[in-house]
């Protein structure tokens, strides 16, 4: 439920999201060497495909957000990659909206960048257990931060949304658990097979 539709958020929140996202795209693109565009595109395509997967969790199923994994693998390029994915999801499937795209991108991309930066600073090749734990922490934390940012965008848009923000936060708990396990496995595999993807 990381896609907020159009019409809910207030103008200042929308403007802030748009401004942050324009900055994020600019920074991400500047750091992306022209020759690295195919690599970033292939990786962001993987994330688009993976985000279509439903995973069963308890009695319902969750959609993965994967922003933690994206931040770790793509670094700063995760921002434009997330914007591309959101744009495609909006125009093809009607998820999210058009004016709210900046806020939705910010809510997913800022946690991705933060988690990716910390992971890259802390991770060392070698110990598998440590890698898995770091991966789980990164995956879970990125979702938690996204949940907080979604709740904050709602809460800052009007007092009347404050009660709903608790429900929003609650709805992210299963996603967080699934994504922590999922990211730990994915990162563990990458660390063993292709560690250069992580550094």
């Amino acid at each position: 439920m990381a896609h907020i539709p159009d019409g809910i958020l207030s103008a200042p929140v929308l403007a802030a999201g748009m401004a942050v996202s324009l900055g994020g795209i600019g920074l991400g693109l500047r750091r992306l060497a022209p020759e690295a565009v195919p690599k970033a595109a292939v990786l962001s395509a993987v994330f688009f495909v993976a985000s279509l997967v439903h995973l069963p969790a308890g009695f319902s199923s969750v959609h993965l957000i994967l922003n933690g994994l994206m931040g770790i693998v793509l670094g700063l390029a995760a921002y434009p990659a997330i914007v591309v994915a959101l744009l495609l999801q909006a125009m093809l499937f009607g998820f999210g909206g058009l004016v709210v795209l900046g806020v939705n991108a910010m809510n997913m991309a800022l946690p991705a960048l933060a988690v990716g930066m910390v992971f890259r600073a802390v991770w060392r090749p070698g110990c598998q257990r440590r890698t898995a734990l770091l991966g789980a922490a990164a995956g879970g934390l990125a979702v938690a931060l996204t949940a907080i940012m979604v709740a904050a965008s709602l809460g800052l848009s009007g007092r009347e949304f404050l009660p709903a923000t608790n429900l929003v936060l609650l709805s992210y708990v299963p996603v967080m658990v699934v994504e922590a396990v999922f990211t730990a496995a994915a990162i563990g595999l990458i660390a063993r097979v292709k560690p250069e993807l992580l550094s």
């Binding site: 292939v42 990786l43 993976a50 069963p56 693998v73 999922f182 990211t183 496995a185 097979v193």
Partner: peptide
Amino acid sequence: VHSWRAMGWLVGMLLVMSLERS
């Protein structure tokens, strides 16, 4: 947990393979 980890490996594998593709 088994299912979630298997799917994690699947996407990890997809990432590794696609990096080589790129």
